[in-house]
Amino acid sequence: MRFAIIISLTLLITACFEHDEQLPKLANPVVTLNLDLDKNQAIFLDLKDIQAENEQPFQDWHLKFQNKANSWAIFLNTLSNVAIYNTRITQYDSITPEYNTQAIKWQLDIPTNNGSAPAIGVWGDFNFDTPKSYKDVYLIRWLSQGEEIIYKLQILDAKESEYHIRYGTLDDSEVYSPWIPKSEVRLHTYFSLSQDQILPDVEPPKTQWNICFTYLTDSISKYPNIPLTTTPNDYFGLYQSLVINQGNTSIYLDTSHSLDAINYFIAKDLSFVNIDEIHNVFYTYNDELSTHEVNQNLIIIVKEGDYYFALKPLDLISTRPKSISLTLEIKPL
């Protein structure tokens, strides 16, 4: 019986589940983002794999084609002063150098509450399996080494996974008619009219970035006190902005917690929103001192699936309006 008692005690007290080990607190990485209108127009960040080096080579693209299935938006590169005008003419050959370009009101992509709306607009009837183009001929202009270039552009019919455009000089000395395939890997395909080719590396694969620091157009009247970079459109200026990868990322702007206090257990219960872009998010502008100041009370919480990150701006140096240097502390939650 004594043996049975010993076994009973053994039964109760031994061979149990291991306790969880305690891990030391991890240091938060700090990253400095140097944004420049001429050299480093956009910085894409993959928060799960933050690279110390975030300089990206300048890519002179003009059109950005949406790759999402059944979506056919075409955006402009406003950072290179690309603007567009719809002539409402459908005969490509009828646009010649004699066309009066002086009175044109150039259009830029329009900022809305749901992100940018393309200035090209609805270029066809999308109620078919493949869009049927209205065949409108657009004039498109950009600056190249300070010189204004104007091309004409016509969007032809598209296939299920390809755009088909025609473009060239107004005198038809150069005419190009490329097919631009949709990529399954990236959100957008970037095309250079001057080089007549797709620039594959402007944007990382869609699974490899969460947020992008760049400049976007917005209404000048909306931010009367913030320095801006002018555009060909009198109503719009370029402002430092945050683009969010809607395919995998949602965000929450928190002003009630400190970075130390925020953890996963708080973050997972927040109401994250899916939004394309936020303008002038990390700083306020001090009119009296004429300087940008980081918003100390703001923390952006970024969610990708089960991954959460808290971003707090630490420092900001601006050589307005051309460049901005932002230092961020990133806390993986």
């Binding site: 891990l23 953890n263 996963y264």
Partner: peptide
């Protein structure tokens, strides 16, 4: 169960 092995918090 989500656990933080630094703080011991779990939910």
């Amino acid at each position: 169960i989500d656990k933080d092995l630094n703080t011991g918090e779990e939910a």
